[in-house]
């Protein structure tokens, strides 16, 4: 298990370095940082001084090493557009995005497993068919249209929920949470539903398919033969074996959660990282883009590691022979 974790770790580090290289190249080749910071009218003298101060006269590998060093400490320089440190911008907006992403992941996984198990157990029931058809339509709907639809129904027509923003937030140290106020919680509902919906349909279909597969397995028949109750078989024996591929897919879907968060945050004017990134793209704000890219890559690598380690918790076979893990 140790060797396996180490290998995952090394692979993750490799991905991070590759992404850092892309981010660094953006700095080097998109616009001239010196002109960006000094403006067009600066004298040659000023430029030379800034070039030296920023270390832009150093050889490429040295600059790249410095970039990685800074990135590891979370420093990406100053936003071209807002004139503020990128690390401050990210820290301000991180809580909004993390609360949104985590809540929608919990919602999607919880509801997805529940509905998936239900649809698998009552395979031909009216409700299961309804749920399955609904999920098919849901997959073909673009995220932003789901968000707009929710806004129209719950904010414009019914006036139950606010249509944009986070509502009131409470500061806990540097973390601004919307979970502690009424308006904050209300503001979370629609973005969480929008962001969770795609994942929900995916997890639900997956759980259903896996569960139907597992229920045909020998050990289920054996459990029945032993006289184990049907509920216990479904929930303890079948569900547990269903969860292994579900964890993989749900983990790998995190990339798309982040992508859909960009869209969701734009629809609901949610003051998170995704909205920050979209703004940066519109104005070619390279430091912010690079920082966001590194952030996404880091999240991706960490989640992959967690997914890998979760296998060990869920599948006892892997604890003895780590090599089998490649098979999944």
């Amino acid at each position: 298990m140790l060797a396996y974790s180490l290998r995952s770790l090394a692979q993750g580090a490799l991905v991070l370095v590759a992404v850092a290289f892309i981010a660094f190249s953006m700095f080097r080749f998109v616009g001239d940082p010196v002109v960006n910071m000094l403006g067009q009218e600066a004298t040659l003298q000023d430029r030379r001084e800034l070039t030296e101060r920023l270390g832009l006269d150093a050889p490429f590998p040295v600059q790249f090493a410095r970039f990685i060093g800074n990135a590891a400490r979370g420093e990406f320089g100053v936003s071209y557009r807002q004139g503020r440190k990128v690390s401050d911008l990210i820290r301000e907006r991180l809580p909004a995005t993390l609360e949104l992403a985590l809540l929608s992941a919990i919602f999607a996984t919880g509801a997805g497993i529940l509905l998936g198990v239900y649809a698998a157990i009552n395979r031909d029931g009216f409700l299961s068919n309804l749920v399955m058809t609904g999920s098919l339509v849901g997959v073909s709907l673009p995220t932003f249209l789901i968000g707009i639809g929710l806004i129209y129904v719950f904010a414009v027509e019914l006036r139950w929920l606010p249509s944009f923003g986070r509502g009131e937030t409470v500061a806990l140290g540097w973390w601004n949470t919307g979970l502690l106020t009424d308006s904050g919680r209300k503001s979370l509902i629609m973005p969480v539903l929008t962001l969770g919906f795609f994942q929900l349909t995916l997890i639900m279909r997956l759980v259903r398919a896996e569960m139907l597969e597992v229920m045909r397995a020998e050990f289920i028949r054996f459990a029945r033969a032993r006289g184990v109750g049907e509920r216990t078989i479904q929930l303890r024996h079948a569900l547990r074996n269903t969860l292994i591929p579900v964890v993989t897919i749900a983990g790998l879907q995190l990339g798309s959660v982040i992508a859909f968060a960009i869209v969701t945050e734009t629809v609901f004017q949610w003051p998170g990282l995704g909205a920050l990134f979209v703004n940066a793209v519109q104005f070619a704000d390279v430091p912010v883009m690079a920082a966001y890219l590194m952030f996404v890559a880091a999240v991706f690598v960490v989640v992959n590691l967690i997914v890998d380690l979760t296998y060990f918790a869920l599948d006892p076979r892997l604890r003895s022979g780590a090599r089998l893990a490649k098979g999944h």
């Binding site: 616009g31 940066a280 793209v281 070619a284 390279v286």
Partner: peptide, 11 residues
């Protein structure tokens, strides 16, 4: 796509 677009905006 967003990244490619952003980079092109800068160039």
């Amino acid at each position: 796509a967003l990244l490619i677009f952003g980079v092109a905006r800068g160039v």
